[in-house]
Design a protein around this nucleic acid. Structure first.
Lengths: 376, 376
DNA sequence: GTGAAAGCGCTAACAA
DNA sequence: TTGTTAGCGCTTTCAC
């Protein structure tokens, strides 16, 4: 295991002056070495590095920030929930930030937090950051914050982009279109939508993508149902949907909701996918292993975080040069076994019967559902 | 939405001297007000606050840290995966840290990272933190880091506790015992274990708890199978276990693995829970909605984070006074529908047959699995 | 290539 | 209850 050796209480931590003395150079030269500045001879550089190593020297970040005016850290405002989406984005951001050489400060907001995003941003500003990432922004109503660093909205429509305001999306709109089109292509007359909370821009985006496809194909758009991303809310929605035999296809804005939805449908005797097809959103790791394996669109969290951070760091370091917005990452629809063509009109399957014949393999599941006796 | 008003580029950010001038007091008094120190008259305090408000003053954290030697931030080393466990712990830590008034710095390690935990700790130390939280520590082999701040291990055995090293667990050992006992109480002859990677202390803890119960009851302990927390690894393990008809009960060290395991068993025609009972670990949100709803032990992430942070902050602020270790949080076993008594010896159910009779309701599921035609 | 001097904005210790 | 004086450890600017 990692041994944590307590620092020698006796001696204070070495400073750059100590290193300079040992190496026989000036403090400025030590500074040059540690900042990778040019104009230091290889010989001197080595001496400095050796001295630092020997002394166990570590640059004092506070002093550096104070003197240079740059904190070399980026702050992220995230949702204080362990939901798969926000958590994955946070992980992506962490990795991306680390690659840029910046440190990461995190503040989370809880749903219904009075201070909200504005409070979180203030807090970050107080801590000292060179840039801010707002992950999965939520509409908090009108609040205004004075900010003097660039801000990246991750998972918000590009409409947010402004002077020092950047966006990088996961392309929710496009992904939602792909999901809806998949269902329509399978032959469903229309697609119902189980949306996320309307306060979330991500939820609005998906809703809009779904609606756009329906409109483009001249299909009627049923009223969307609003969930809260949780499996429980999907379950609740499913109980309502199950008794409407017009419902043959549902696009859920999140995998958790999709799983809850499927459970409710199944309990009500509506078989997925034979009676109702369900598409999820996220492609969380369990999606391939639930019953039936879930057809879903994968969210490119890492790509979005990486692209977004590239933009942000650029805005921090070269504010004068504008960079084009990040390109939308490729759409990945993962077709598994929760979607199928609609039941034929002539045999409206309402209640389950026991029929061990395997079901038709029109769809191409990534994971076969093996020797399971099928129900219809 | 949150309006981000750009700072007036013209004027530099106000400093405490500006506030002091406007309020007609000294800089030290401003400092006093912002640090909540006593000995400031209400009248003066108000003047200072007003002046600060008017000027849009914000304390400069770097200067403060430099002058005081305290950064007022805590660093956390977390796993760079969006797994439900680590993510939940991180969220818990964030909340707990925020409640203490400290800021949070985050560094993640990826499995197989050469620098590993030691590198992450170094990085945090370089950034400047008053304390460190190591979430879900993994055995990295022998590495040693010089640390001069207290360190909290979250999710590690108390054996780690040392001079300035604290631990707060989620009581994995106890939880694992509860899971195993539940299965034994149901009448199973023994319980198989699908463990997490042996490098994880959390995995070892659970393994040990499982083994201890088996030993205490004089049952034979089958060899544990090692997974990697993923549903995929659970699935792989399940394919192996499915054809061993002695296996009637499995305790999986994580819900994801349990779900993968159940899928493999089901595909192989082994019904859960009639043929095989499965207990998971974590109680992730979807656990109640998969098929069958998963019996699992809930991990008290938030409680552990909160307790742990209390300890850590205490160690930072009052290093001289020792605090007793955090009490183990209560064990919560959530019994749903994935566990049942073992199949009776006389009718060894090996292959699925179609039998729509409902299965016995011995167990008390939180969520009934409704009108589903049962398979055995 | 290298070094000297002058702060960065705040708090600590002491004085008043 | 309030103010004064020194730094905290680094980077900057400019000189050599």
């Amino acid at each position: 295991m990692v041994q944590l050796v307590g620092g020698d209480e006796s001696h204070p931590a070495p400073r750059s002056a100590d290193v300079a003395r040992v190496a026989g150079v000036s403090r400025k030269t030590v500074s040059r070495v540690f900042n990778g500045e040019p104009y230091v001879s290889a010989e001197v550089r080595r001496r400095v590095l050796d001295a630092a190593e020997q002394l166990g020297y570590r640059l004092n970040n506070a002093a550096r920030a104070l003197a240079s005016g740059r904190t070399r850290s980026i702050g992220v405002v995230t949702l204080g929930t362990a939901g798969y989406g926000p958590a994955s984005l946070l992980v992506g951001v962490e990795r991306a930030v680390r690659d840029t050489g910046y440190a990461l400060r995190v503040v989370s907001t809880v749903e219904g937090d009075p201070a909200g995003v504005a409070g979180a941003v203030e807090s970050l500003l107080g801590q000292g950051v060179d840039g801010i990432v707002i992950s999965e922004p939520v509409d908090d109503g009108e609040v205004s914050v004075r900010v003097d660093v660039p801000v990246l909205f991750l998972g918000a429509p590009p409409a947010f982009a402004g002077r020092r305001t950047l966006t990088a999306g996961v392309g929710s709109d496009l992904l939602a279109r792909a999901a809806t089109e998949h269902l329509l292509d399978l032959g469903h007359a229309t697609v119902h939508h189980l949306a996320g909370p309307r306060r979330w821009y991500a939820a609005r985006d998906r809703l809009q993508g779904w609606r756009a496809v329906l409109a483009a194909r001249g299909r009627s758009a049923p009223a969307a149902i609003e969930g809260d991303w949780s499996a429980a809310s999907g379950y609740a929605a499913g109980r309502g949907l199950a008794y409407d035999s017009d419902v043959t296809a549902v696009f859920a804005a999140g995998d958790d909701m999709a799983i809850g939805l499927i459970r409710a449908l199944t309990e009500a005797g509506r078989h997925v996918p034979d009676d109702v097809s369900v598409v999820g959103f996220d492609d969380m790791p369990v999606a391939a292993y639930v019953t039936p394996p879930l057809t879903t669109v994968r969210q490119p969290f890492d790509a979005a975080a990486k692209e977004g951070l590239k933009l942000l760091v650029h805005a921090i370091e070269k504010p004068e040069v504008d960079l084009p917005p990040a390109p939308d990452p490729p759409v990945e629809l993962v077709v598994r076994a929760s979607t199928a063509p609609p039941p034929s009109r002539t045999t409206p399957g309402t209640w389950a019967s026991c029929d061990p014949s395997p079901r038709g393999g029109l769809h191409g599941p990534s994971i076969s559902d093996g020797g399971l006796p099928a129900q219809r």
